[in-house]
Amino acid sequence: MLLLLQTVVNGVLLGGIYAAYSAGFSLIFGVMGIINIAHGELVMLGAFSTYWMFTLFKIDPFISLPISLVLLFGIGYLLQKFIFNRVVEAPSIMSYIATFGVHLIIANLALLLWTADFRSITTSYSGIHLNLGGVIIPYARLVTFFLAFVVIIGLYIFLYKTDTGRAIQATAQDKEVARLMGVNVYRIYAITFAIGAAITGIAGSLISTYFIIYPQMGLPYTIIAFCVVVLGGMGYIPGALWGGLILGVVESLTATYLSAGLSVAITFILLFFMLIFRPAGIVGKGIIE
């Protein structure tokens, strides 16, 4: 019973992490229809910026969060402005491939600069945890979990309560109409991508405090983000939370009761059947076409 409880708790915490780094993926898809294959690289960049600030300047990861945020916001803005804005109106294959090009460039630049080594951060609070009647909850993961909520709620408020947010929504719904209303669609795209990158970057920063990081970590993260977002409904931001939680718990249960290796297979099988039977996601609010 304790094992089951611990497994579910682990799954929920893992799901929080998944949700935190997938929300940006969903946002970018929802607004621009771009499947960002370089998404994992944004996680990686966030993780490495925290890592370097920690190892070089002894800046605590939680203090460097805003720095990662700003850094990734800038990178995201530039990527959209100079690259993706040029393909966003082309057939969607073009934008997938462009993001793949960016994935190759960032991942391999990182390999050149930082080598393929595995790295990790050990802080004073690494390893400390909450013990709830035998169920172990590491603090760092708990924080990430809450951050996922904060990010998703924050994004929600931003999209519904601010002018820029509303402009983003108008653009997502019908860019021609948005244009007629005087919205600078390309600028909105750049801001959207920047926001998506920024929230993904902080998720990466947090991840660096308890997972191993390396320049090639990106692709698996992208693939998981795919799954999470499909489970929750593509482009439906709160869906990332649902998707993350389901995936986290399913993976955790599979790893404990079947085999750790199979959990990845289960992920993909789940994804495959989800797409076929419920393409709009668990709660049915995703974009289908």
Binding site: I83, R86, A98, G101, V102, H103, L104, I105, N108
Partner: peptide, 13 residues
């Protein structure tokens, strides 16, 4: 790989 990425972007754009 970097070069490949750049070629991709050039072709696409």
């Amino acid at each position: 790989m970097i070069l490949l990425g750049i070629i991709i972007l050039i072709v696409i754009i």
